[in-house]
């Protein structure tokens, strides 16, 4: 177990390093941040001056070494655009993104599990068809269109909910719905098929034959198995959830990290892009490590997943 954890940690460090390097390389191809920072009436000297101050006039290998040593010392630099430490910018915005993501998961997962299980048990019933339709809808609708439609209907026409903002619970309703629909749909589908798979297995038949109560069979064996699949799936899908968050944050004016990153990419804000990718990769790795540990803990049979 300890060896596994150490190995896992080493892998994580390697992945983080690779992400860092990859981003660094892509950014040097992206373009010249100095151009994004001058006002159009500046002179050529101003442009050179900016490049000098930012250290962009140095050879790339030197920039890379500087970057690496800074990161190792915990210094992520200052944003070109905001001229403030990148860490502060991220700290201000990370809570909103985490909160939105977390609430969306907390809302969508239980519902998805519930409906997934029910529709697997009552296969081909009216409810199953309804759930399946909802699932496919959820996976087929562009988030930003769905979100705009909600604003139009619930905020402008019905005046039930505030169109934007962050802080009050009411303001979170529409963003959470927009965020959860995609993830919820995928998880429902996953639960349903995982349940169907399990119910066909021999040991379920055996359990039934031994006269175990149907609910018990479902919960003990079926749900247990489905839960495993869902945990792995959700942990791996954090990246896709984040994509939804970028869009949802823009439409509902939520002060999250997604919008910050869009601004950063459009303005070629190297330090901000580098730091935020790294933070994301870190969060992702932690979640997946924990998910893996849960996995081995709950079902030693699957510990071969170490080698994936």
């Amino acid at each position: 177990m300890i060896r596994y954890i150490i190995r896992r940690l080493l892998q994580t460090v390697l992945v983080l390093f690779l992400v860092m390097t990859l981003v660094f390389v892509i950014l040097r191809v992206v373009g010249d941040p100095a151009k994004m920072m001058v006002t159009p009436d500046s002179s050529y000297e101003d442009l050179q001056n900016i490049r000098r101050i930012l250290g962009l006039d140095q050879p790339i290998w030197k920039q890379y070494l500087n970057y690496l040593s800074d990161v190792l010392r915990g210094d992520f630099g200052s944003s070109y655009y905001f001229e403030r430490p990148v860490i502060d910018l991220l700290k201000e915005r990370l809570p909103a993104t985490l909160k939105l993501g977390f609430i969306s998961l907390a809302v969508s997962l239980p519902l998805a599990l519930l409906f997934g299980v029910i529709s697997a048990i009552k296969r081909n019933s009216l409810l199953d068809n309804a759930v399946t339709t909802f699932v496919v809808m959820g996976r087929s609708i562009p988030t930003f269109w769905f979100a705009s439609l909600m604003v139009l209907i619930f905020s402008v026409q019905l005046k039930w909910l505030p169109a934007s903002g962050y802080g009050e619970t009411r303001q979170l309703i529409m963003p959470v719905i927009a965020m959860s629909s995609g993830m919820g749909a995928s998880v429902t589908r996953l639960t349903r098929s995982a349940m169907l798979d399990v119910m066909r297995q021999d040991y379920i038949t055996t359990a039934r034959a031994k006269g175990a109560a149907e609910t018990k069979v479902i919960i003990k064996h079926g749900l247990h198995n489905a839960l495993l699949a869902v945990v792995t799936f959700v942990a791996l899908q954090i990246g896709y959830m984040f994509a939804g968050s970028v869009v949802v944050e823009s439409i509902f004016a939520i002060p999250g990290i997604g919008r910050l990153i869009v601004t950063a990419i459009k303005g070629y804000d190297f330090p901000l892009i580098q730091a935020s990718t790294l933070i994301f990769a870190l969060i992702f790795s932690i979640i997946n490590c924990v998910a893996d540990l849960c996995y081995t803990l709950i079902d030693p049979r699957i510990s071969f997943r170490i080698n994936k």
């Binding site: 705009s148 604003v151 139009l152 905020s155 402008v156 005046k159 505030p162 169109a163 934007s164 903002g165 823009s250 439409i251 509902f252 004016a253 002060p255 919008r259």
Partner: peptide, 18 residues
């Protein structure tokens, strides 16, 4: 001074009087 990125959302808030 509020920050609302989407033009349509700004208009919606304006109409709602917020």
């Amino acid at each position: 001074v509020r920050t609302i990125p989407e033009a349509a959302t700004r208009v919606a808030e304006m109409v709602n009087g917020t």
